[in-house]
């Protein structure tokens, strides 16, 4: 695969990458900034991607690293980020999402309440549809770690989404 072909494949991954970034950052604007950051990083090291491995996993790993860096740098600057998707993106709930039992803005609020390490697992597995094993490969952690993070996240999600105290 030459560079033009890889780039063409990256273009196809953009909708998924944007959805992933939206789930992580909680807002469309921050999400697209993260997408840009991730793409710039990926383009700088296209030569590190190995043919025969999955380009999407590689890209998502870069995106999650970029996100962690952003979170850390915000913390080190002492900026407390209060995530408020509603304020950031009026009308973020499209017609399709409004008919769902959980609106997008509520989902983003719930995700924002999760610790980062749990949020990223939920975004990979529950929203994008990666298997536990694939998520563990993207994050570079054992599969058991993915399972336990997801399990803790799920308990919190059930409490907030379904209004339950315990799973």
């Amino acid at each position: 695969m030459d560079e033009a072909e890889i780039r063409a494949e990256l273009v196809k991954l953009l909708p998924r990458l944007r959805q992933f970034a939206l789930a992580l950052t909680g807002s469309r604007a921050d999400g697209d900034d993260l997408v840009q950051d991730a793409l710039e990083r990926a383009l700088k090291r296209l030569d590190q991607w190995r043919v025969g491995t999955r380009l999407d996993s590689w890209l998502f790993r870069i995106a999650q690293n970029a996100w962690i860096d952003q979170v850390r740098s915000r913390r080190s600057r002492g900026r407390i980020v209060t995530e408020d998707p509603d304020a950031d993106a009026p009308g973020i709930d499209g017609a399709a999402a409004m008919t769902a039992s959980l609106t997008l803005s509520k989902a983003l609020r719930v995700l924002a309440s999760l610790p980062e390490e749990q949020r990223v697992v939920v975004a990979l597995v529950q929203i994008d549809g990666y298997s536990y094993r694939e998520a563990s490969e993207i994050l570079g952690v054992p599969e058991g770690t993915v399972t336990s993070r997801l399990s803790r996240a799920r308990a919190a999600l059930m409490a907030q989404v379904l209004g339950e105290d315990a799973p």
């Binding site: 560079e3 033009a4 072909e5 780039r7 063409a8 990256l10 273009v11 953009l14 909708p15 998924r16 944007r18 959805q19 939206l22 789930a23 697209d32 997408v35 840009q36 793409l39 710039e40 383009l43 499209g94 399709a96 999402a97 769902a100 039992s101 959980l102 609106t103 997008l104 509520k106 989902a107 939920v122 529950q126 929203i127 999600l157 989404v161």
Partner: peptide, 24 residues
């Protein structure tokens, strides 16, 4: 529910600036 909340996200148009960044 979570998947439902994100329904339609993949069909949204990608902003041109992001497209331009990676387009061959």
């Amino acid at each position: 529910d979570l998947r439902g909340a994100f329904a339609g996200q993949l069909d949204l148009e990608v902003p041109p600036r992001l497209q331009a960044l990676v387009a061959p």
